[in-house]
């Protein structure tokens, strides 16, 4: 979008005093993410992980061509609901971010923002070769090659494109990971935040958002 909205500007209070507005600082929380330890009570954490694995709310955000493969999951033929998988329209309420296919730099920016707005524990599932190594867009000037340099990926589903069965298998894998307590991708993101941010900032040249989008 146009740049003037992110630059500093002066507004005037009702009394006519000037107020300087610095959009990035003033509108957005600037804090960085923290690591959240799992509960030390094993049985409690196991129970929670069971619930997490049985209730995967997926964010309805199709980034690339793979989005078309996600829709059949909800049809009678595949019926992902029976595994506790359902779509949510807002990142605040979603647990799983399915990155469905190639990511241009422009889309990556939105993906990062949305991922950061989700509440932890949160999981990333990457679809197709494009997210693994760039796929057929490996030498494009505008498409990323490896998603795991920008976001902590929990599960990759290979293929170009993977079919819904593969996706279901991916979800199954994700469940296993969560159940075993290894679904801590978001903590990894917080731990290695500087590295992720550096990678992100390397390709997103006009960085016009706070470092972490709460």
């Amino acid at each position: 979008m146009s740049k003037e909205h992110t630059e500093k500007r002066i507004v005037y209070s009702p009394e006519g005093d000037p107020i300087e507005v610095n959009p990035l600082q003033d509108y957005f929380c600037e804090d960085l993410p923290e690591v959240h330890k799992a509960s030390s009570i094993a049985i409690l954490e196991n129970f929670r992980n069971w619930a997490r694995s049985r209730s995967l709310w997926v964010l309805g955000f199709g980034t690339g061509c793979g989005a078309i493969e996600m829709r059949p999951l909800m049809t009678p033929k595949f019926d992902a609901y029976r595994y506790g998988i359902q779509w949510r329209p807002t990142p605040r309420q979603a647990d799983v971010f399915v990155v469905s296919g190639y990511l241009s730099v422009k889309t990556l920016k939105r993906v990062i923002r949305t991922y950061e707005q989700m509440q932890g524990p949160k999981y990333v599932m990457a679809l197709g070769s494009c997210t693994i190594n760039g796929g057929m867009y490996w030498d494009s000037y505008n498409t990323i090659n490896r998603l795991d340099y920008y976001l902590p990926v929990d599960v990759y589903v290979a293929g170009c494109m993977p079919r819904p069965e593969a996706l279901l298998a991916g979800f199954d894998q994700l469940k296993k990971i969560i159940r075993e307590g290894r679904g801590e991708g978001y903590n990894k993101y917080a731990e290695e935040f500087a590295w992720y941010k550096a990678n992100q900032k390397k390709i997103i040249k006009d960085w016009d958002m706070p470092d972490y989008n709460w």
Binding site: W138, T143, I144
Partner: peptide
């Protein structure tokens, strides 16, 4: 968004090289 190189469709822009340098192959 935020493109600072030479225009990418010009043939003297080496897209493979750029991708390798930028996108962690």
């Amino acid at each position: 968004e935020g493109w600072h190189e030479i225009p990418p469709y010009r043939r003297d822009f080496d897209t493979k090289n750029y991708s390798e340098e930028t996108y962690f192959p």
